[in-house]
């Protein structure tokens, strides 16, 4: 009992040491933590109600007034409050889409890798087919049909981006299922479902975790694309994507309205990308971009 505890501790220690050496990943992790905290505590941090209109205070520049630190938009709404609440929306969509992607991708990847044969063949041809479509095209077509709620947007993003995850998981399962512990579980009479989800899945956790982190980044980006094109989060609910669309109309005169939400998207995507990159290097040196 003690032996396993020590072994797992030292493995966690090794992972943490490798992760710590990756300074950009640490910075990414910090950014992600701050963003999540700011989204979580948005009602406490926001100076105002993000939907409060005040047409007397339109287009205030940033840093001019302590009560409205980042200025106001075309309807006199406080930009900082809208950014904070918009971050809530964007991150929620990012996280729910990521969960959808990972669950779909993992189930299909495990089924294909473990069951093999015809199932594998059919599922992987389906993946190939889905990958023939440019994701933004697929996303927009589906998003144009469904009524845009936070849940439907997240699901649409998740269900059009699970294909890479399923390939990663399948490759991992193909390698794992030849290992002795699977043979042992089979010899002990474990059912196929048990082997798939209790034996194989936990052992494939590292690449899934890395893919999940990177998928949050791409889902936030996708949300901003479809919101920007008008098929995502609908006003008056603020998301960083639709704030940008709004700002585009006043772009030549009040550029900060477009700069701020774009910077927020970039910062978020970058945070998750650097975090994911660092996790990949730390969790599984085999998967490094840098051989």
């Amino acid at each position: 009992m003690n032996v396993t505890a020590v072994a797992s501790e030292s493995q966690a220690g090794r992972i943490w040491t490798r992760f710590r050496q990756h300074r950009l990943a640490l910075a990414g992790g910090l950014v992600v933590a701050l963003l999540l905290a700011s989204a979580l505590f948005a009602p406490l941090l926001a100076p105002q109600d993000p939907t409060l209109l005040d047409t007397a205070l339109r287009f205030r520049p940033p840093f001019a007034d302590w009560a409205l630190p980042l200025g106001t938009d075309e309807l006199g709404r406080d930009t900082l409050s809208r950014l904070l609440y918009g971050g809530r929306v964007s991150l929620t969509v990012g996280l729910v889409a990521m969960v959808t992607t990972v669950v779909t991708g993992a189930v299909i990847g495990i089924a294909a890798g473990f069951l093999g044969g015809l199932v594998d063949n059919l599922l992987m041809r389906f993946v190939d087919t889905m990958l023939c479509f440019p994701q933004v095209f697929l996303l927009l077509v589906v998003a144009a049909f469904v009524p845009p709620t936070l849940l439907s947007i997240s699901l649409v993003i998740g269900l059009t981006s699970w294909m890479e995850v399923s390939r990663i998981v399948r490759a991992e399962i193909l390698h794992l299922k030849e290992q002795d512990f699977v043979a042992a579980a089979r010899a002990l009479g474990a059912s196929r479902a048990r082997i798939m989800f209790r034996e194989l899945l936990p052992n494939a956790a590292a690449p899934i975790l890395v893919a999940a982190t990177l998928k949050v980044a791409s889902a936030v980006l996708m949300e901003s694309y479809i919101s920007y094109l008008g098929y995502g989060v609908q006003p008056p609910l603020a998301s960083w994507g639709n704030m940008l669309t709004n700002a585009q109309g006043y772009f030549d005169t009040v550029p900060w309205l477009a700069i701020l939400p774009g910077a927020a998207i970039t910062l978020t995507v970058m945070g998750f990308n650097f975090l994911g990159d660092g996790l990949r290097d730390a969790l599984d040196p085999r998967l490094r971009m840098d051989p």
């Binding site: 920007y228 585009q248 970039t266 970058m270």
Partner: peptide, 14 residues
């Protein structure tokens, strides 16, 4: 990695 995090349309607007 920084460039990969840029939303294309925002970079375009900038």
């Amino acid at each position: 990695l920084f460039a990969l995090s840029f939303p294309t349309f925002w970079f375009g607007l900038m």
